[in-house]
């Protein structure tokens, strides 16, 4: 457990940062991959071991970062929504409905989709919680963050190994 302390902590930080709007608009898709890089670097520094990082280790780090950031990202988003009764979905709903309205799709289908949006919005505004919304964002976060965590870890490990190899030559 102790050897995964760095991806746990960095995963937690990435989960929090994912909810912060300014950071999100600035770091875009690089939050989770960058978290993987920091976590692998910190692990090397903490253990004072600058030997080649095994890709299997990087792979596990990526999964841990993905799962941790997904869990905490979801928890924070749900908590903030519960307290403020506001979130990204509610803010962007009028635009989403406008978009759906513009699609060349059957009217009945449009109505069904819009009523689905409305139910979620009403739950979030009145109760601050929607089970459907929670399950959706949890699944989304778990899948996307884990994939980006693993991809980021493999990229980072290759980069760090190559950097350390170059340092050896000097």
């Amino acid at each position: 457990m102790k050897k995964y302390i760095s991806p746990f902590i960095i995963g937690f930080a990435a989960g929090v940062l994912q909810v912060v709007p300014f950071i999100k608009s600035f770091a875009c898709c690089l939050i989770i991959p960058f978290a993987s890089y920091i976590s692998l670097s910190l692990d090397q520094k903490a253990n004072k071991d600058y030997s080649k990082i095994l890709m299997s280790k990087a792979f596990i780090f990526g999964i841990v970062i993905g799962l941790t950031s997904a869990f905490f990202g979801t928890v924070f988003e749900i908590l903030i929504t519960f307290i403020t009764k506001q979130n990204d979905l509610i803010a962007s709903l009028p635009e989403l409905i406008k978009m759906v309205d513009n699609f060349p799709v059957d009217e009945n289908i449009k109505k069904e989709v819009i009523s689905l949006f409305d139910n979620v919005k009403n739950d979030l505004i009145n109760k601050g919680f929607s089970l459907f919304y929670t399950v959706t964002i949890l699944l989304n976060n778990l899948i996307v963050n884990t994939i980006f965590g693993v991809v980021g870890s493999l990229i980072s490990a290759s980069f760090i190994n190559n950097k350390n190899k170059n340092l050896d030559f000097q």
């Binding site: 999100k24 608009s25 600035f26 989403l96 289908i109 689905l116 989304n140 996307v144």
Partner: peptide, 21 residues
């Protein structure tokens, strides 16, 4: 047309990795 039901989820999935300004 039926793909419209996945639209909000797909939109949300990509919103995780981009600010979508």
């Amino acid at each position: 047309n039926n793909l419209i039901f996945i639209f909000p989820f797909a939109e949300r999935t990509y919103s995780l990795v981009c600010h979508q300004d």
